[in-house]
Computed example of a mutant assay.
Amino acid sequence: MKIDFTGKKALVTASTAGIGFAIASGLAESGAEVVINGRSQETVDKAIARIKTQLPEAKLIAAAADLSTAEGCQQLVSKVPDVDILVNNAGIFGPADFFETDDQTWDTYWATNVMSGMRLSRAYLPAMQAKQWGRVVFISSESGRNIPDDMIHYGVTKTAQLSLSRGLAKRVAGSGVTVNSVLPGPTLSDGFKAMIADEVEKTGKSYEDIGKDFVMAARPSSIIQRPASVEEVANMVMYVCSEQASATSGAALRVDGGVVDDIV
């Protein structure tokens, strides 16, 4: 199977690091013109330079914007008014006890994890429908189905993404546009590495070894018994965005290593 995005323009939100960076790099390597987004111009420029080091011919557009606000989303849409592929990857996470999670925290998570994807989908889907081709992907999480008791606020937003994705897929049914969710499990992203950095420093173990210890302690149902790499998650997203995935829409596709213990 040869996946080719030549002639397609893709926007990957929060693509300066982690899973988003891996997705953007993969799309660029496969021929897409890719919009690199982050909160600051500095991080966007650094990400573009990093991709260019490996892919000198990559077609990249810089688009710094804070997508946790309506104004930031509009700023991005004004700069890039039309895309063929939208990957809603912007999101935040972090543990906090339910009884210590205040309203502002809930609002911040909702604005970033849910409203950003909703606003951008509302902006870009009509043109995709008119062209009778488009791809929208929400980067959700296994936590959307396997709600963690130490991150309830996060899990709720990830469940909401699944509902939004499924509803939008039905809304654009028959148009040639697909809408799907991809659900990573524990992944050795930059954010995850930051979360376990103290343990790495304290023990002298590698990120991979500490990541495996974390998975076996916190997600013992994992079948692969380790975190995924960002590239492994990006591979699923690449397929979902491809021409070959034209019969896949309204799906919640897991890259969780088997953490969610069911067969559907």
Rank of each mutant, 00 (worst) to 15 (best):
A252H: 04
M238A: 11
W110Y: 14
A194Y: 11
T6H: 12
D149F: 14
A111H: 10
V87P: 01
G250C: 04
V83R: 02
P148S: 05
V137C: 04
M115Q: 09
A47M: 07
L164W: 02
S15I: 03
V259N: 00
Q161A: 01
V114E: 04
A65R: 01
R166N: 11
A197M: 10
K46R: 15
P186T: 10
G20V: 00
Q75L: 15
S116H: 05
K158T: 01
A228N: 01
W110P: 03
G31Q: 08
I61C: 04
M216W: 05
A62I: 08
A247F: 15
E33V: 09
N180V: 06
G91Q: 05
E208I: 08
D66R: 08
I224W: 06
D256I: 05
P184M: 02
S116M: 08
K131E: 07
Q161H: 06
G191R: 03
E33K: 11
V35T: 09
A63C: 15
I263Q: 10
I224V: 13
R254W: 10
S141L: 00
S15H: 06
V179P: 00
T101R: 02
R254N: 13
S181M: 03
Q129F: 13
F93Y: 08
K202Q: 13
F214V: 06
M1G: 15
I210V: 10
K9Y: 09
S143P: 11
P56R: 08
K202C: 11
S141C: 00
Q161E: 11
V137M: 03
A127H: 12
F93C: 12
G257L: 02
A130P: 10
A217S: 15
A194I: 15
N235S: 13
V264M: 12
S221T: 15
I23R: 01
G258C: 03
A49W: 07
A245K: 03
S181Q: 06
G250D: 01
G176V: 06
A123F: 06
A10V: 05
L188F: 07
Q75H: 13
E33Q: 15
A194C: 10
V34C: 09
L67G: 02
G31T: 03
N146Y: 07
F98A: 14
Q104R: 09
G191H: 05
V179Q: 02
K79C: 12
S116A: 15
S249K: 03
S30M: 11
A228Y: 02
A10E: 04
D103G: 12
G167L: 02
V233D: 00
G176P: 04
D97N: 14
C73G: 10
I152G: 07
L162F: 00
R119E: 13
R122Q: 15
Y154E: 03
A130G: 11
V215D: 04
G38W: 03
Y109L: 11
S163C: 13
A65M: 09
K2P: 11
P148G: 07
K52N: 12
E142K: 02
N146H: 12
Q41W: 10
D261Q: 11
K205Q: 13
